[in-house]
Design a binder for these strands. Structure first.
Lengths: 219, 219
DNA sequence: ATTCAAGAAATTTGATCAAATTATTGCCGC
DNA sequence: GCGGCAATAATTTGATCAAATTTCTTGAAT
């Protein structure tokens, strides 16, 4: 039964599952993450769960609480400013690098992903929106072939994932940032500068949304 | 015997030890890192070693090789460019943020660290240089109180640590970047702009050194 | 007879689990 | 409140299994 499962080790699968739980906000900020809890929830052994937790802690997705426990971090204004600063330098750069490698089939794939984003927004389906939005951005970034910067971007997304989910739940999915149409138009036109500007706006908008939620104490 | 050691869990100690081995170039680029090897070398159990490896892999300090093994990554020009780009945005920003929190005692401590750097350079002691240089930069960065950006900087340093060691071994310690005097003068003068420029030069110089070594095939 | 290659055995290394140990938390009686 | 006891959870070890690599063997072709 584990014919194909045997290719991917349990600790990797466990990591991916826990990572998605954080990334798509199925764990809210402040939620404690216990080893034993995950052992029974994901029914994996203790070692794979431990490794997944360590990896995500190293990526900033989880925070050690001093007393050997870890929890999903709560975003503060200070932390958000740092995330925004880093995103606004790294991700536009990734878009610029990706622009040099864009092919019609890739643009089509991005279009499909963005259609999913639109549908999720219209349906008010937040989990789907978060997943599709993430997929859109990283499909683009992966084309940059800049692994180091993509790693940094991934880590940053993990840091605001849980809070973004909360923000969406409060404000609904209407006011969500979506400069993807602009971005796609720029890609089709082969205009790297316009692509960079679209991505930059998208990020700035998203970060502002979270910033306001923090300022008004909603998170 | 482990009376005070018991406060810090083994997996944490193991992580720090392995991290320093990478950071200060005691493992050279391309070197394989085996679990069992570390179990006997660091004499820790298998689980702590596994966790240390996972954490460092997540930080980009180690690279999975497809076949369940990990190794110290070999720097390529492409990767170095990304590291340089990220360092040149993150670390000057950290210096700028730190400038607002600089106190005379901290500046004195930085001076002491830089003296150690100078002594190591004059003595041609590369391991000491690497350690003191790292300590100088991160004592400054830590003052920024910007944990997210410091995490990113740490990860970047881990990525070039092993190669920097090789470069130093080739070129000797004379041509090593050291704009620390400028930086310290700027701190004493309370000139944040000058501090940022000094740190920027220091980084640019260091990255260029490594870039040349890669270009001439020395790494 | 020598060389080379394919395949099998042995060795090394990684993955996973279960049990024993140790720390932390929270409750209960004082 | 305070101190200790029970419950919960994290840490660590060692054993066992699985995968990958290396070494050894064997047999066919030259």
């Amino acid at each position: 039964m584990d014919a194909e499962n045997r290719k991917i080790p349990t600790h990797e699968v466990t990591y991916l599952r826990l990572r998605d739980m954080i990334l798509y906000g199925r764990l809210e900020p402040g939620a404690p993450v216990t080893i034993q809890g995950l052992v029974s929830e994901l029914d994996a052994g203790m070692t794979p769960v431990r490794e997944a937790i360590r990896r995500l802690t190293a990526e900033g997705a989880l925070r050690p609480q001093g007393n050997r426990r870890v929890a999903v971090p709560q975003l503060t204004g200070r932390v958000l400013d740092q995330i925004a600063f880093a995103r606004l330098t790294v991700e536009p750069k990734l878009a610029e690098l990706a622009a040099a490698h864009l092919s019609p089939p890739l643009i089509d794939r991005l279009q499909v992903l963005d259609n999913t984003v639109d549908r999720a927004i219209q349906a008010g389906n937040i989990p789907d929106y978060l997943e599709a939005n993430h997929a859109f951005h990283f499909a683009l970034y992966d084309a940059s072939d800049a692994v180091v910067l993509v790693d940094i971007a991934r880590s940053l997304w993990l840091r605001f994932g849980p809070s973004l989910r909360v923000v969406c739940a409060h404000y609904g999915s209407d006011a969500l940032p979506d400069r993807h149409h602009e971005a796609l138009a720029a890609m089709r036109a082969g205009d790297a500068g316009a692509l960079v500007r679209a991505i930059t706006s998208d990020i700035a908008q998203g970060m502002d949304q979270v910033r306001q939620a923090i300022a008004t104490g909603e998170i």
